[in-house]
């Protein structure tokens, strides 16, 4: 461990590589987490199929390459397709669990995750798939830092998507309706907001964001019908660390955890890479608890 830290001192450029890789990874996790934060915050549904939506998006990009189209064009296709898919899923399943207790929504979405995994497995087989972007890989700083163009492009696209969603939430009628519903569904209904439609839209939007993340993942990591769980867990960790209802926090937490993960993997070894992320989450939760109990005492 110490020799690894020493190594970072001897070759400081490695820090740049790790930081960049961490931010690139983090940006994609942010997308999945952002969608989860929306659904969780607005409808109080904890979607365990989040990662499986991501995988679906990835397979859309994969199908595009099979058709001879560059996978990056899978982005709009995945967004539209997954939006529609999310809407249907809401109308068929999710509307039944909104407002029900925690376990109902967990069970329903967990069941959904299994169905999606098995369907993907039937259609695409359990083999590991990738979509190749074919973009260049550039070396900087004397070859010590390499950046694949696709990672950079994904990072930028993730940024653009996040900005679009945030702007949409702030300024559009629907965005305002979503936020109003999140604050108080009953009051929103009284004000004439069709909360059913808001819920359906929110869930569909989440699926679309996940689909976009999946397209990027297909060009950076690998696809397999059962890998969705990884992204579900990541999304939950990020949203929990950021604190519910804290959308900018999701972005910071996602990027931060991505970077921490890379450094942990380098210094402590890959076996402790995820341990560190989850350990950090526990630390944040404990710290927050301590803060809150202090706050409560002050109020008293």
């Amino acid at each position: 461990m110490l020799d690894n830290i020493a190594l970072l001192g001897i070759a400081p450029l490695l820090n740049v590589q790790l930081l960049l890789d961490g931010l690139f990874i983090g940006a994609i996790f942010v997308l999945a987490a952002y969608g989860l934060a929306l659904v969780w915050g607005v409808m109080n549904v904890k979607n365990l199929a989040q990662g499986d939506f991501v995988m679906m998006g990835g397979y859309i990009a994969f199908v595009m390459t099979k058709l001879g189209i560059h996978p990056i064009f899978g982005l709009p296709v995945a967004i539209v397709f997954m939006f529609g898919f999310g809407w249907v899923v809401y109308r068929v399943i999710i509307y039944r669990v909104v407002g029900k207790d925690l376990f109902t929504s967990l069970l329903a979405t967990f069941g959904m995750a299994i169905v999606i995994q098995q369907l993907l497995n039937l259609i695409f087989s359990p083999d590991v798939m990738v979509a190749e972007s074919g973009f260049a890989i550039r070396s900087y700083l004397g070859g010590m830092v390499t950046v694949a163009d696709i990672k950079l492009i994904s990072f930028l696209l993730a940024g653009v998507l996040a900005t679009l969603v945030i702007t949409f939430m702030k300024y559009s009628r629907m965005g305002q309706a979503i936020r109003a519903t999140a604050q108080d569904p009953r009051a929103a209904r009284v004000m004439g907001i069709d909360t059913e439609r808001v819920y359906a839209f929110t869930f569909a939007l989440n699926a679309a964001i996940c689909g976009a993340a999946g397209v990027l993942i297909s060009m950076i990591w690998v696809l397999q019908p059962f890998f969705g769980m990884t992204y579900s867990i990541r999304a939950f960790v990020i949203v929990t660390a950021a604190g519910l209802g804290n959308l900018p926090g999701v972005i910071i937490a996602g990027l931060g955890l991505g970077a921490v993960e890379q450094f942990a993997g380098f210094i402590l070894g890959a076996e402790l890479q995820q341990f560190t992320v989850v350990g950090l989450l526990v630390a944040i939760l404990v710290w927050r608890q301590v803060q809150m109990s202090r706050h409560r005492q002050a109020v008293r």
């Binding site: 990874i25 867990i233 993997g265 380098f266 070894g269 890959a270 076996e271 890479q273 995820q274």
Partner: peptide
């Protein structure tokens, strides 16, 4: 390095290799 089962990324390990 021992990679956890659900780790989809090896870049930290490979940076060390580099």
């Amino acid at each position: 390095d021992k990679l956890p089962r659900d780790l989809a990324d090896m870049s930290a390990t490979l940076t060390k290799v580099k």
